[in-house]
């Protein structure tokens, strides 16, 4: 009797838990099958079926929406082509918020080579790739508790920019 009761309770628990488990599994499978970014990678990367120009426009739109200013766009592809190399589209967008850049260079001049931030857009096969360095990798280097929340916020922004740019339409 006791065993039967426990078995019933176990079945009840299983019935309660299984939908959550299945949902979690489907979510994980869905993310993996779409090749979307894994947001604790050191280099964040997303692929999209948008063409290069649309993706670049999307990235710019998302950056502006998050109050980042675009400093300039480096056309690495043009430079390489001028030197005789055959390359597909490959451009880097430099961006940042002036107050944050000033705060970082004042407190941690050693971060200067990473400023302004850079987001890379390039053609890879029949997809367009968007990539950016995960700012959280700089956390242990500066070891500044006051900046931890900033690094996390930037990472959150960058993940969002990659996701929105690769999935939304103009």
């Amino acid at each position: 009797m006791r065993i039967i009761l426990n078995t019933r309770l176990s079945s009840l628990s299983l019935r309660l838990i299984m939908p959550w488990f299945v949902a979690s599994f489907l979510l994980a499978f869905s993310v993996a099958s779409h090749g979307k970014l894994i947001d604790d990678d050191k280099i964040l990367l997303a692929h999209t079926s948008h063409d290069f120009d649309t993706t670049l426009a999307m990235v710019k739109k998302q950056l502006v929406a998050k109050n980042y200013k675009i400093a300039h766009v480096q056309h690495c592809d043009n430079g390489l082509k001028k030197m005789g190399y055959e390359v597909d589209k490959y451009q880097v967008v430099f961006f940042g918020r002036i107050d944050e850049v000033r705060e970082l260079t004042t407190k941690h001049a050693e971060l200067a080579p990473f400023l302004p931030f850079k987001i890379l857009i390039y053609v890879e096969g029949d997809k367009t790739a968007i990539s950016i360095m995960n700012p959280e990798i700089l956390k242990p280097i500066v070891a500044d508790e006051a900046l931890v929340a900033k690094f996390e916020q930037w990472k959150h922004d960058f993940v969002d920019i990659l996701e929105q740019s690769s999935t939304s339409s103009l």
Binding site: Q74, Y90, P113, A129
Partner: peptide, 28 residues
Amino acid sequence: FCHFGKLYKALKIEPRLGVVLPCKITVL
């Protein structure tokens, strides 16, 4: 600064390298 030959070779090995490009030295 850039050495395009080296850049071309490096991008063939690692296309995501652009996230740290170009080579630069900052003077503050």
